[in-house]
């Protein structure tokens, strides 16, 4: 592992000291996967990390290969080094029930509301309500201390909380809780609740990380998202460049291939040396593949440059062949640790 203070190889440094990590990105870029690897990496020094899912899709349990998660914090993984990852599938309806009971002591009415479909209704006509309930669960876990409210100086229950958040298109609204609930009750518990949530989200110990691919649309969304999050005064963490494929060519080779200037003779000589049949015809065929590869690498570099222009530290994760299972998740976790991710 590198010893540099802020070397380019240590993009994960931005995580040091943060307690809430919010992971967003274009749909399908790997938010759930990255959030899980991040939670494991943060737990690798023996910490206790909570991974919160808010989209109700049970992506976390699928990834870890455990039964669907209930609305309850559960230990789902222990990490070499003594740390552990807990997970919670936050659910707006359950959170609203909890909330009604806590502030109004009205469990029965809550049940009637559910039967009426009122909870679904309420969160539909006021999408901000759903969001504040979900962010509320995550931020409550960030503030929670051992021994509960009676011991305000007790150690934190979790060393860090990682949220698998909604995609970039909705992240600004999702996190800007205060303005979201502006149209809702102007005083009272909801308002106070929103203020407390916002305090955690605005805290300097919170980071919003973006997952991108080296493709035009995910990168464009990342740049727009970073601008939006910065404008809201929230702290941008890293850009996680996911599914990176290594380039197999040298710089000179890339430039030549992209220009369609491949030395077919040299290629054919190599193929003959490898005793492959039909080396001349094969060299023509392979040269086309090399050119396509070089063009793609060139596009990826352009996109990478555009992402770098945001100024956010960039952490690379490789493309894992055949999808992400248990072993791949461990490999991705290691890549994060190597690039400086720790508590």
């Amino acid at each position: 592992m590198s010893e540099h203070e802020h070397g380019p190889r240590e993009p994960g440094r931005t995580c040091a000291g943060a307690r809430l990590h919010i992971v967003t990105g274009k749909g399908g870029t790997g938010k759930t996967t990255v959030a899980a690897a991040l939670a494991r990496a943060l737990a690798s020094d023996g910490g206790r990390v909570l991974l919160v899912e808010v989209e109700g899709r049970q992506g976390v349990s699928t990834l870890f290969g455990v039964p669907p998660l209930p609305y309850e914090e559960r230990e789902i993984d222990s990490v070499p080094g003594g740390g552990s990852v807990f997970a919670l599938a936050a659910d707006a309806e359950a959170a609203l029930m909890e909330y009604l009971e806590m502030f109004y002591g009205i469990r029965r009415a809550g049940q009637a509301l559910t039967r009426l479909g009122a909870v679904d209704f309420a969160t539909t006509i006021a999408p901000g309500l759903r969001d504040v309930l979900l962010t509320g669960k995550a931020t409550e876990a960030v503030r929670r201390r051992e021994g509960g409210r009676r011991r305000p100086e007790g150690p934190f229950r979790y060393d860090a909380v990682v949220m698998d958040a909604p995609p970039t298109g909705r992240i600004g609204r999702f996190l800007n809780v205060n303005s979201e609930v502006a149209g809702l009750a102007r005083v009272g518990p909801i308002r106070n609740h929103a203020d407390r949530v916002m305090e955690v989200i605005r805290s300097e110990r919170t980071r919003v990380h973006f997952v991108s691919l080296l493709e035009e649309m995910p990168a464009q969304e990342t740049r727009d998202g970073i601008a939006e999050i910065s404008d809201l005064g929230l702290r941008v963490g890293m850009v996680v460049v996911n599914m990176v494929r290594p380039s197999l060519l040298s710089e000179a080779g890339l430039a030549a291939a992209a220009a369609g200037e491949i030395d077919l003779e040299a290629l054919a000589t190599g193929l003959k040396a490898a005793r492959l049949d039909d080396a001349d015809a094969l060299s023509v065929s392979l040269a086309r593949e090399v050119t396509a590869h070089a063009l793609r690498v060139r596009l990826e570099r352009r996109v990478r440059g555009e992402l770098a222009d945001t100024g956010a530290p960039m952490l690379d994760l490789p493309l894992v062949e055949g999808g992400v299972g248990r072993a791949a998740l461990e490999a991705l976790t290691r890549r994060m640790i190597e690039q400086g991710v720790r508590l």
């Binding site: 080779g253 491949i262 290629l267 000589t269 190599g270 392979l286």
Partner: peptide, 9 residues
């Protein structure tokens, strides 16, 4: 030997 061929293969 032949690094370009290695890469292409």
């Amino acid at each position: 030997e032949h690094p370009e061929t290695v890469a292409a293969l």
